[in-house]
Amino acid sequence: MTKDVSPTSPTTPLAPFPIQYKSRAPEFYGFVAWTSTSFLFVIYVLWALLPDEWIVWLGVEWYPNREWSILVPAWTIVVILLTYFIYFALALFGTPAFNQPRAISDSRSHFPKMPQSSSSEDTDINEPSLSSLYQAYAPFARPDAIPELYDIPIGMVNRVLYGKEKD
């Protein structure tokens, strides 16, 4: 038998709301996790604090040495701290130095094609001259131009903003 459910809208505020049946399994899993964690913590505290005679009186014949009640939490804290330290060290190791070009551009950078010049200005292959940079970006600086999307090299930005490098 199908139920006629009309959609709710501002014009019909009394339309029936569709009933959704949700599983209550997460509530039960959460309750079981909470109670089992609490129970294990109580057992741990009793093992760590009760005298040996009381534990034997409760019927427990064998249990680990008491020093493990201190060693396990201490080692756990050390492992957690080492994990943070290792992740921090790996992040520092993977970060390029400030004087490397990888720090400011990557393989996804999109630059216009540089004009071929045979002048003696281009002494460094990695660092083009200011005039060749201007020639590459000049067509996109016209007021009526719709520029293509390009990245601007940090060297050009620094030269325009701060002038030529001074000794």
Rank of each mutant, 00 (worst) to 15 (best):
M1W: 05
K3I: 14
K3C: 10
V5T: 15
S6E: 14
P7Y: 08
T8Q: 06
S9P: 02
S9A: 07
P10N: 15
P10C: 09
T12F: 09
P13A: 10
L14M: 06
P16W: 03
P16H: 01
P16S: 01
Q20Y: 07
Y21D: 07
K22L: 12
S23P: 04
R24S: 03
R24K: 09
R24T: 08
A25H: 08
A25D: 14
A25L: 15
P26S: 03
F28A: 11
Y29Q: 08
G30N: 15
V32R: 14
W34I: 06
T37K: 07
S38Q: 02
S38R: 05
L40Q: 03
F41Q: 00
V42G: 07
I43K: 01
L46I: 15
A48S: 08
A48R: 07
A48E: 00
L49H: 01
L49P: 01
L50D: 08
D52P: 12
E53W: 06
W54Q: 11
W54P: 01
W54Y: 13
I55E: 06
I55F: 05
V56F: 06
V56H: 11
W57F: 13
L58R: 05
L58Q: 11
W62K: 13
W62F: 05
Y63N: 04
P64Y: 03
N65W: 04
W68T: 03
W68P: 00
L71C: 06
L71S: 08
V72S: 04
P73G: 09
A74P: 02
A74N: 03
I77N: 02
L82D: 00
T83V: 00
T83N: 09
F85C: 09
Y87S: 07
F88C: 01
F88G: 05
A89Q: 10
G94K: 09
G94D: 09
G94E: 04
P96G: 08
N99K: 11
Q100H: 15
P101A: 08
R102F: 01
R102V: 01
R102S: 12
A103K: 06
I104G: 02
I104T: 10
S105K: 12
F111N: 02
P112K: 12
K113E: 04
Q116H: 14
Q116C: 10
S118R: 08
S119M: 03
S120G: 05
S120M: 05
T123K: 14
D124F: 04
N126I: 01
P128R: 08
L130F: 15
S131R: 14
S132L: 12
P139S: 05
F140K: 01
A141S: 06
A141Y: 02
P143F: 11
P143A: 04
P143Y: 09
D144H: 10
D144K: 13
A145S: 15
I146Q: 09
P147R: 11
L149I: 12
D151E: 07
I152T: 04
G155C: 01
G155Q: 07
M156Y: 02
R159H: 04
R159F: 01
K164H: 13
K164P: 00
K166S: 07
D167Y: 04
D167V: 03
